[in-house]
Simulated scan of single mutants.
Amino acid sequence: MSVRFTLAERQLKLLKHGLQSLQKIGNELLLEALPTRVVLRTINSSLSAYLSVTYSASFFDSYDVLDCTVVQAGLLIKHVLSVFRTQRVNNILFDLDTALCKATITLHCENGLVKSYRLPTMDSEILQATVDKQQFAVRLTAETPAIARLLSSFHAGLEEVTILALPEGSHRPVHVNSFIDPQKGHVDKSLYTSVQVEPIETFLTYVNSADEATDVTFNMKDFKAILSLCENLGTHIKLCFDSPGNPLVAEPHFPNVNGQDVDYEAELILSTLLESHAGAAAEEVAMDAGDRPAGIAAGSNLRTPGGIGADSPTGDAKVR
């Protein structure tokens, strides 16, 4: 059972960008080759971030899955990326044989050199995180540089941020706030930043079907993996989220495709904190509506983002 494909020029750059983003999430590359596509996946050690990058068969110059309908194997991402250190490559041949437990990558360079790399494969369980993002209340699309500028307002050492979406009709209904875990640092002595956003000025599209304020708190470092991928691909970015404990989904959004199929796609699924951290803004909305402000209960147990799995606090995110 094996898969073999070749690629050059534009495809090489796009594959490298995908691998670099995957490395920002995990160390192990899970490869699944089907007759119509190749899916590259990784998950971080805490099971709180899952990234998949898919390349259709038409993406490659040539593509064949031999002697089977699916090929699955694990590779170390650092081994695969080491191949791309060579400059001025005309084309690459990738040949993975599960029977021999190895992958061979052959580079044909502009200077006439032919370089071959043999990478050991590992037996790995192929994970698939499934989320029904169409059911999420909040969906937005934005130019990637706009989101990058928004996040640049927060200091580099910040681990997590909270996105708060207020009901329609609210003034500046999207807030992005620092989240400081009291178990990790002194809240009173930490820099706190809050950015209020008017969707029509910052986003390309914005939909919030929730009747009340909702928020999600997630890891900033993991989110930047998909942000950098969208920047390198030159695409917009799309976010979908719902409520605390449900995952946040981020993916590239391809502008001006005019209904044409794209030959690559990606999806990042992030766990979020179980507790709401909407803060004073949500309380004000609740008070305006005549409701009792929920706030954060005294002694709430704040937890880091949970794992992505059937028993995880993310609920809708399942790995199988």
Rank of each mutant, 00 (worst) to 15 (best):
R4F: 11
R4E: 11
Q11Y: 01
Q11E: 14
H17P: 00
Q20P: 00
S21G: 05
L22V: 13
K24I: 08
K24D: 13
I25M: 07
I25V: 15
L31C: 12
L34W: 10
T36M: 04
L40I: 12
S45G: 04
S48T: 15
S52G: 05
Y55V: 07
S56E: 09
A57E: 10
V70C: 12
V71F: 06
H79K: 02
V80L: 13
V80M: 06
L81Q: 10
Q87K: 12
Q87C: 05
V89N: 00
N90S: 08
N91F: 13
I92D: 00
I92Y: 02
L93Y: 04
L96H: 05
T98K: 06
A103I: 02
T106P: 00
T106H: 02
L107G: 01
H108S: 12
N111C: 06
V114D: 00
P120S: 14
T121L: 15
T121I: 13
M122F: 14
E125N: 11
I126M: 13
I126V: 15
L127D: 09
L127W: 09
D132F: 08
T141M: 08
E143F: 11
T144W: 07
S152M: 13
A156D: 15
L158Y: 13
A165L: 04
L166H: 05
V174Y: 03
D181K: 04
P182V: 15
K184H: 13
G185Y: 11
V197F: 03
P199L: 08
I200E: 11
E201L: 14
E201A: 14
F203W: 06
E212W: 01
A213R: 00
T214L: 09
T214E: 02
D215Y: 07
V216P: 01
T217V: 12
T217Y: 07
F218D: 02
L227V: 15
L227Q: 08
L229P: 02
E231N: 11
T235K: 00
H236V: 05
I237F: 06
C240G: 04
N246S: 10
A250E: 02
P252F: 12
H253K: 06
P255C: 05
V262S: 01
L274P: 02
E275T: 15
A280N: 05
V285A: 03
A286R: 04
P293T: 09
A294L: 11
A297D: 10
R303A: 15
P305N: 10
G306N: 03
G307F: 07
A310K: 09
T314D: 09
G315R: 10
D316P: 01
V319M: 13
